[in-house]
Design a binder for these strands. Structure first.
Lengths: 194, 194
DNA sequence: TGAATGACGTTTTGCGAATTTTGTCAGTCA
DNA sequence: TGACTGACAAAATTCGCAAAACGTCATTCA
């Protein structure tokens, strides 16, 4: 049956997420996850072909939540400028809070960045699509100069990478000689304007 | 005597640079450097208090060369826009070529980023000062909007970080969904314009 | 007298053995 | 018959110790 299969997958991911958050990604092995669910390690492999695949699925699930957040911001009844500003601030807050405060989550992210390029790339693509739509709105509303929304979205994203990329954010957080989030966002927004 | 002391320091750095480039930073020990110069390991410590200090000094020397390159660009008889464009392209080229092609240099850079924050921060400050001057020129010439040149320089730098930061450049190089250097530079320059 | 060194204590690294973990598969049980 | 497991091979990780590298200092030598 397919629904019960999905059920199992969700249960495994829930258990994995809880254990990874509590003990860390490397300290948790699939035997731990199996024990937590009262099943044998071998059984886990009927649903995920490797521990890495569990990590990837979990990663995708978390990124999906992040995407939802951005999606909601993108639909707010606000100017394109304001929506972009809120997007970056939300991402920055998310990055700083969950990546740096929670040591265990940070480990998962680092491993993810090192290894699971595909899930992350797909996420970036989807986010950039949303950004492109907002920018398209802005162009139509006369807020922004006429330009290719896809390229503009990529450039905008790259410009604020120091605020949203976990590694960069970690490196820049304590530095004196860096622009404030507000300054950098205003700068990037100015590039879009007429 | 102070001149001969300087002489020794330079010789040690020259030897260290050659050996680091050839064998890698971690594979080279201070005994290797000493042997190469026909002196005892202990003697090295009259000039540098640790292997790390040698690495830092070497780092500073290389960054100084990079600074010189930027300095020359900043004095070229070109528009501010064009000088900034050349600055980023030069940095990008440098980063890609020396950091990624030469594996051994890459190792030194990674160790440097992980440990020797101070030298690197100082370098960024100096570069940003040059950029601020160029931007000041641009404002006076009417190319750029009126703005704080210091802040603008920091923002500009942050915006193109994916092109100049060794780790970021390495991560973004192969990606499809990233702006091209040209696109990103134009984007950042647009933020400065009137 | 001060540049230079050999000898030496301390810390770090490298490496093979032992243990843990991953992932497979034949076989059990409902 | 197919969800599930225990037993097991292969791969990865940890551990303990020997070797190497770091950094100090009393001593030598010019």
């Amino acid at each position: 049956m397919d629904a019960s299969r999905q059920e199992n997958i969700t249960r495994i991911l829930d258990a994995a997420e809880r254990l990874f958050r509590h003990y860390g990604y490397t300290k948790t092995n699939v035997a731990d996850i199996a024990r937590d669910l009262g099943m044998s390690p071998a059984n886990i492999y009927r649903f995920f072909s490797s521990k890495t695949e569990i990590h990837q699925a979990l990663c995708a699930r978390m990124l999906e939540a992040s995407y939802q957040q951005v999606y909601e911001i993108s639909r707010l009844p606000l100017s394109a400028t304001e929506r972009l500003r809120r997007y970056v601030l939300a991402q920055h807050k998310m990055t700083v809070e969950t990546m740096l405060d929670e040591q265990k989550v940070h480990e998962m992210v680092i491993v993810a960045i090192e290894r699971e390029w595909h899930v992350i790339e797909k996420h970036i693509d989807r986010i950039d699509q949303l950004l492109a739509e907002i920018i398209r709105d802005g162009i139509e509303a006369g807020e922004f100069a006429d330009q290719d929304p896809e390229i503009a979205a990529r450039c905008f994203d790259s410009s604020v990478v120091t605020l949203c990329h976990p590694q960069m954010a970690a490196q820049c957080l304590a530095k004196e000689n860096r622009p404030t989030p507000g300054e950098l966002i205003d700068f990037a927004l100015r590039a879009l304007k007429k």
